[in-house]
Amino acid sequence: MAEMEVRGMFVETETLKMPQLKYLRQYHATSLIKDGVIQVKKSRAEVCMAAALHVCTFQKLAVEGSLYPEVTVLSWVQCDHCNGWLHTDCAGVQEKSLKGSFNCGCQLPLQRSFDRTRVALQQKGIGGLIEDSGIVDLHDALLSRQQRSCRMYLWEHPETSLRLKQLCKPRSLFFSEDDTNQLAEKIKRALKLSDDPDMVNFMFDIMIPEVTIKILMTHEGFCRYKAELCLQSGNLTP
């Protein structure tokens, strides 16, 4: 208004009548509702980054539904750097343990030397990477669903999706063939697994990937999503 007066422009004032006031109130109320709807849609539009790797704990199925359909309340965490979203299960973190910040590992190079893991392996062998008790605890957590995993769910429900089961398998071994065989023997002894073909498949399809993820999280400080990303890269033999 002041600028218009300086420019020599004059605006006539007009007292708004009831129909005009009613229209303005309705207009502003409608605008507020639209804004609210947009915000709600945005808040529900998060997509878990692990879904692109086919390892999302709550992966959507081609027909309908998702893995772990009994879980109706999903907890999310957002990366402070890339602003991407992950389920807390896919990030490998507990909601109560978060202290206001989270890094998915997006700033770290995909191809790393894995020095900490390599040093522990060279100094103490496979036994230096994870204790038998750690393998047993992980196994028990998977069975009790304290640790949710798309691999474990698909193992327990093989009719769900054979294609997804194949997609979530690592493309390569993290360790050398000899070290992988030693890890397999260690898992077999710790869990007292038989030579039954189903148990052999269970070890290679479930336990070796899950133990490797645990090793990367422990020694490299990765979140679960970053460890999964490393397994998917296919170039990880230290």
Rank of each mutant, 00 (worst) to 15 (best):
V11R: 11
G234V: 03
L110H: 10
H87C: 05
L164K: 01
L67N: 07
K165R: 14
C79W: 14
A91E: 02
E177T: 12
V11P: 12
T72H: 15
Q166T: 13
L142H: 03
R7C: 12
G92A: 01
H81T: 14
L216Y: 04
V6Y: 13
L154D: 06
V37D: 11
M9C: 07
A190H: 02
S113E: 14
E5V: 03
G128K: 03
A184H: 09
N83G: 05
F175A: 09
D35M: 10
A29C: 08
Q26A: 09
L16A: 11
K60I: 05
L229D: 13
Q166Y: 10
I206C: 01
H54I: 00
G128F: 12
L21S: 01
L167E: 06
L110W: 11
E156R: 07
C56S: 12
L138A: 00
S194A: 06
M18L: 12
C79V: 06
E159N: 06
A120I: 04
E95N: 10
T212Q: 05
Y68K: 01
M152W: 06
P170Y: 02
T160P: 09
H28L: 15
E210K: 00
Q146S: 06
I33D: 13
D132E: 15
V47K: 15
L173W: 15
H87F: 15
R118W: 13
S194L: 08
W76S: 07
E5G: 01
C90P: 15
D137M: 08
E177F: 14
W85L: 11
F114V: 02
L236A: 09
Y225Q: 06
K22I: 10
A52D: 01
C82F: 15
D132H: 07
F102P: 06
D80C: 10
A141D: 15
C82V: 14
I208F: 05
R163K: 09
G8K: 01
R151Q: 11
M203L: 15
V119Y: 05
S31F: 11
H28R: 10
R224D: 01
H219D: 03
L129M: 11
R171I: 14
C90W: 11
V71L: 05
K96C: 11
V37H: 13
Q147A: 01
L231H: 05
H139D: 12
L154E: 04
S31C: 09
H87A: 06
G8Q: 00
Y23R: 04
Q166R: 12
G127L: 03
D140S: 13
F102N: 05
Y225E: 10
I130W: 04
V93G: 04
P238Q: 00
F102H: 09
L53N: 05
L53D: 07
L21A: 01
E5S: 03
R224T: 00
G221V: 10
M18K: 10
